[in-house]
Amino acid sequence: NMTTNERRVIVPADPTLWTQEHVRQWLEWAIKEYSLMEIDTSFFQNMDGKELCKMNKEDFLRATTLYNTEVLLSHLSYLRES
């Protein structure tokens, strides 16, 4: 059983600085953390943090459901504000 610390993704605090690998790690973490289903992860495959942060609700909806979109966008905006 993993502790919270072991599951925590170590990525730069500012999502606009993320590499493609960071985006992948964040997505994998969010899927596990929030038990998200039905995400087309290939949609995010060649995307870095700058591109991710430019995405709006409609962009996310092409890859996943409305619920997942709201979870991911709210977590992303939380990270950008902190």
Rank of each mutant, 00 (worst) to 15 (best):
L52Y: 00
G49W: 01
E51W: 03
V11H: 11
E21W: 05
R62C: 06
F44E: 00
M37R: 10
R8L: 04
T16N: 06
R62Q: 14
F60P: 00
T69M: 03
T64N: 03
L17Y: 09
T4F: 11
F43V: 08
G49V: 01
N68G: 08
L27K: 02
S74I: 02
E28P: 01
T16M: 11
W29G: 15
L27A: 06
E28G: 07
D40N: 15
I39E: 05
E6Y: 05
N56C: 07
D59W: 09
L27Y: 01
M37V: 14
Y34R: 06
A63T: 09
T19E: 02
R62E: 12
T4H: 08
D59F: 08
H22G: 09
L61H: 04
Q20E: 06
V71D: 00
D48L: 04
L36D: 03
F43S: 11
R7A: 05
M55R: 03
L27H: 03
V71F: 06
K54D: 14
W26L: 02
E70R: 04
V9F: 12
N5F: 09
N1V: 07
W26F: 06
V11Y: 13
S82Y: 07
R8E: 13
E6R: 08
C53K: 02
V23E: 00
V9K: 15
A63K: 09
N46Q: 10
G49M: 00
K54W: 04
L66Y: 11
T16C: 04
M55G: 01
Q45A: 13
K54M: 13
R80S: 15
M37K: 12
F44S: 03
N5K: 12
T4M: 10
S42Q: 13
D48E: 06
M2F: 14
P12W: 12
T4V: 12
M37C: 05
T64M: 12
Y34T: 02
T41M: 12
R8I: 03
S74A: 13
E51P: 01
W26A: 00
D14E: 14
K32E: 12
L72P: 01
E51F: 05
E6I: 09
F60T: 00
A30W: 02
E28L: 12
Y34V: 00
G49A: 00
E33G: 01
A13W: 13
K54N: 13
R24V: 14
K57F: 03
M47I: 14
D40H: 03
D40C: 01
I39R: 00
T64E: 01
L66T: 09
K57Y: 08
L76E: 01
S77F: 08
F44Y: 03
L17K: 09
T64G: 08
M37S: 10
Y67I: 15
T65D: 07
D40G: 02
V11W: 15
W29L: 08
V71C: 14
S35A: 10
N68Q: 07
S74V: 02
P12A: 07
T69C: 06
E58R: 11
Y67T: 12
E21L: 09
R24K: 09
N68K: 00
M37F: 15
I31T: 11
T19A: 05
L72I: 14
D59K: 10
Q20S: 13
V9I: 08
K57P: 07
M55Y: 05
W26T: 00
L76P: 02
H22M: 13
T69K: 01
C53V: 12
K50G: 10
Y67V: 14
T19M: 04
C53H: 04
V9R: 15
Y34G: 06
P15V: 10
S35P: 06
I39T: 07
Q25H: 09
T65Q: 06
T3P: 05
V23G: 00
L72A: 03
L27E: 01
R62V: 14
D14A: 06
R24H: 07
L73Q: 14
V23T: 06
P15K: 00
Y78V: 15
F43W: 12
I10P: 15
N5S: 07
M47N: 05
L61E: 07
E33A: 07
R8T: 06
L76N: 01
N46P: 06
E33F: 01
A13N: 15
A63D: 13
L73R: 08
N68H: 03
L66C: 11
E6Q: 07
S74Q: 03
A30Q: 15
T69N: 05
H22A: 05
L73Y: 05
E70M: 05
M2N: 07
R62P: 06
V11F: 15
T65H: 05
D59L: 05
P12R: 10
L66E: 13
A30S: 13
T69R: 02
I39G: 01
T4Q: 09
E28I: 15
L52T: 00
L73G: 05
I31M: 14
P12T: 12
T41S: 08
D40Q: 05
G49K: 00
R24W: 14
R8G: 03
T16V: 10
A63H: 07
M47R: 05
I10F: 06
R62S: 13
I31G: 04
L36N: 02
D40L: 00
V71W: 11
T65V: 00
L72V: 02
M2A: 03
H22D: 15
V9Q: 15
D48Q: 06
L52W: 00
V23D: 01
A30N: 08
A30P: 00
C53Q: 09
F43Y: 12
S42N: 15
N5R: 11
L73V: 09
V23C: 01
T65M: 03
Q45N: 07
R24C: 04
V23R: 02
T19V: 04
D48Y: 04
E38P: 09
G49P: 03
L61A: 08
R24E: 04
L66H: 12
L52N: 01
T4A: 14
M37P: 10
Q45V: 14
M47H: 05
L27R: 01
C53E: 03
Q20G: 10
S35G: 14
E21R: 11
W29M: 15
L76K: 01
A13L: 12
K57H: 03
P15D: 03
L36F: 06
S35T: 12
V9W: 12
F44H: 01
T19Y: 00
A30H: 07
M2W: 10
S42D: 14
P15H: 01
T41F: 15
